[in-house]
Design a binder for these strands. Structure first.
Length: 467
RNA sequence: GCCCCCAUCGUCCAGCGGCCUAGGACGCCUGCCUUUCACGCAGGUAACACGGGUUCGAAUCCCGUUGGGGGUGCCA
C-alpha cells in the first residue's frame, strides 16, 4: 500500500518554523517510503478564509522545496461532506443538539461539583435544532481509546475524561474534528504526522472515526514541539518564527531544511550537514525523538555559513544582489555609490566570512561611502589604537607616505610596512582600523586601492583626531 | 484543578541491556595557521534529574518522586 500523508495547516497568517518542520517531516516520510503527500488547508472557521493566508503557506513551502502530490484542498470547500457526517452522527444517536452557552454549562458543572470539562447536560433532553444550537458528540461513558503512536508508543485516554465536544457550531459549520476525520478517510491518509499539541484531540477524532464507520484508522505519529529558550511552544506573537522572514534575512532554504531536519531527529552516523537526498534515505519516523527541541538560531547560523561557503562564488554573488542593493537588508551606502565590480572582486573573501547574506554589507560598507564611523569604545579600536605603540606617529607616517604613493595594493602595502619598520611598531592593524573602521575584515589593500586617495587620506586624519 | 506527553553536555543529536572511564555537532576556552578577522587544523570545557526495583550487568526495562511542557474553545 502506498503511504499517504498530509500537511494540514490552519491558515492563521505566515508559516512558522514549527509548521514548516511538520511539513518537512511529512515530506521526508513520504519521500523515504515512496509515498504521496497531500496539502490540505484546514479553514473550517470562517475567520480563516483569506486568500493571502493561503499564499503565506504555499510560497514558503515551495521555496523550501517541500512539494506535494495533491492539493491544496480546502476544508471549507468540502463542508457539505462534513455537514452530512454530522447529520449521520445525530441520526445514529452518536451526537445531539445542545443549546447551552459555555457559561451556562460551566455554571451547571460547578453546581453539580463536576469538573468544568463536562458538557453532557443536554444529553437525552430531546432538544430540537435551533438558531443557538450546537451539535455535541456523545462520548462513551466507559472504555478507553488507545493510540498506537509511532513515536510515543501506546497512549491511552479514558472515555469518561473526554467531554462531549462540539462537532457543529451554532452557525451550522462543522468543526475541525469532524472535518479532520472525514477528510483523512476520504483522502485515504495512511499516516497522520503532526505536532504533539494535537495529541489530545486524537482520541476524539478516533471516536468520530468509529462512529462514522470509516474502518481502518491511519497510523499516528506526534512530533515533539519546537520551543523557545524558555521551553515554551514557539508562538507567533512572542517569538521570531516566520519562515519567510528567515529566508529574506539571508538564510538559504537548503540550510533551513537541513537545520529543521535535525530538530527531533538525527542521522545515525553523526554527519549533520548533508544533502537532502541523504536525509531522505536515512530518515526513519520511528527514530524521531519524544522530547521538545529548542530552535537555536546560533546553530542555524553555523549551518547556513557552511552552505554559503559551499556555494560557487558566481552563485554567491548572484544571490547577494538583494542584499547589496538594499532590497532585503540595510545598507550603509548610497545606491549610486555602489560598485558591482568591486564587490565581485572581494566576493570570495566576503563569502568566507559571513553566515547569512544580510551580513554582507557589514564587510563592504567602507568601500562605497566616503565616511566610516569609529567606535572608540569597541574592543577592536582599543586593542589597535589604544594599546598599540606609536599610533599617532604611525598614522602620520602613513598619511605622509600616501600623499604621493603609487595607488596600488603593492605600493600601499609596502609604504605602510615601511612606516612600521621605521618606527619598530605594528602598522597594518592601525591602518586597517583607520581605513575600514574596524580591526576585522577582508584582505585590505586590493580593496582599499579601489577607493579614492582623498577619501583614504581623510579617514587617516579622522582616526588620528580621535586618538 | 483534571487529562496527556516528556526528561543524556548550556543547546541539537547518537546511544535502543554488556562495545559507555557516554560519542558527534553548535557555543565557549586554548594553541597552530594568518600582516586583521574569518576559514581550516589540533586540543579543552561540559550531561545520563533523583530514589527504588528487575538483571550477573542499566543511560538503556519497570515503578515512584521531582522538574518541564502540551491540552482543557461554538481555534486548529
Amino acid at each position: 500500500m502506498t503511504t499517504r500523508v498530509r500537511f494540514a495547516p490552519a491558515p492563521t497568517g505566515f508559516l512558522h518554523v514549527g509548521s514548516a518542520r511538520s511539513a518537512l517531516f511529512n515530506w521526508l516520510y513520504a519521500k523515504s517510503t515512496g509515498g504521496e503527500m497531500i496539502l490540505r488547508i484546514e479553514d473550517t472557521d470562517a475567520a480563516l478564509r483569506k486568500p493571502e493566508f493561503i499564499d503565506a503557506i504555499v510560497k514558503p513551502l515551495q521555496t523550501l522545496g517541500i512539494t506535494w502530490d495533491e492539493g491544496p484542498y480546502y476544508q471549507s470547500q468540502r463542508q457539505q461532506f462534513h455537514v452530512d457526517a454530522v447529520e449521520q452522527l445525530v441520526e445514529s444517536g452518536h451526537a445531539y443538539f445542545c443549546n447551552l452557552t459555555r457559561d451556562e454549562a460551566d455554571a451547571l458543572a460547578k453546581e453539580a461539583g463536576l469538573p468544568a470539562g463536562y458538557h453532557g447536560w443536554s444529553r437525552d433532553k430531546g432538544i430540537e435544532d435551533g438558531p443557538d444550537c450546537v451539535v455535541r458528540f456523545r462520548t462513551p461513558d466507559e472504555g478507553e481509546v488507545v493510540i498506537h503512536d509511532v513515536i510515543r508508543g501506546e497512549v491511552r485516554f479514558k472515555n469518561v475524561e473526554l467531554e462531549d465536544f462540539v462537532i457543529r457550531r451554532s452557525d451550522g459549520s462543522p468543526t475541525f474534528l469532524v472535518a479532520n476525520a472525514v477528510d483523512d478517510a476520504d483522502m485515504s491518509i495512511t499516516h497522520v504526522i503532526r505536532g504533539e499539541d494535537l495529541l489530545n484531540t486524537t482520541p476524539k477524532i478516533m471516536l468520530l472515526w468509529d462512529a462514522l464507520d470509516f474502518g481502518d484508522k491511519p497510523t499516528y505519529a506526534h512530533l515533539p514541539l519546537l520551543v523557545n529558550e524558555q521551553r515554551k511552544k514557539l508562538s507567533k506573537r512572542r517569538d521570531d518564527v516566520s519562515l519567510m522572514e528567515f529566508l529574506s534575512k539571508g538564510y538559504l532554504p537548503e540550510a533551513m531544511v537541513n537545520h529543521l531536519a535535525l530538530l527531533g531527529w538525527g542521522p545515525p552516523d553523526d554527519k549533520e550537514i548533508r544533502p537532502i537526498g541523504e536525509i531522505i534515505e536515512l530518515f526513519k519516523l520511528e527514530n524521531v525523538n519524544k522530547g521538545s527541541a529548542f530552535f537555536d538560531v546560533t546553530k542555524l547560523n553555523h549551518i547556513n555559513g557552511e552552505y554559503i561557503r559551499a556555494l560557487p562564488v558566481e552563485e554567491f554573488i548572484e544571490m547577494a544582489q538583494p542584499f547589496v542593493y538594499g532590497v532585503d537588508a540595510e545598507i550603509s551606502w548610497d545606491k549610486d555609490d555602489y560598485k558591482p565590480e568591486v564587490f565581485e572582486m572581494v566576493a570570495a573573501d566576503v563569502q568566507q566570512r559571513v553566515d547569512t547574506f544580510s551580513g554582507i554589507p557589514h564587510y563592504i560598507g567602507w568601500l562605497f561611502s566616503d565616511e566610516v564611523s569609529y567606535d572608540v569604545e569597541s574592543k577592536g579600536w582599543k586593542k589597535a589604537m589604544v594599546k598599540g605603540k606609536m599610533i599617532p606617529e604611525i598614522l602620520d607616517g602613513i598619511a605622509e607616505a600616501f600623499v604621493d604613493v603609487e595607488w596600488t595594493a603593492e605600493a600601499m602595502n609596502a609604504a605602510v610596512a615601511g612606516v612600521g619598520d621605521a618606527l619598530e611598531a605594528r602598522s597594518q592593524v592601525p591602518a586597517r582600523v583607520a581605513i575600514t573602521g574596524t580591526n576585522a575584515g577582508i584582505p585590505l589593500w586590493d580593496a582599499a586601492a579601489t577607493i579614492d586617495r582623498d577619501v583614504v587620506l581623510r579617514r587617516l586624519a579622522a582616526a588620528r583626531a580621535l586618538l
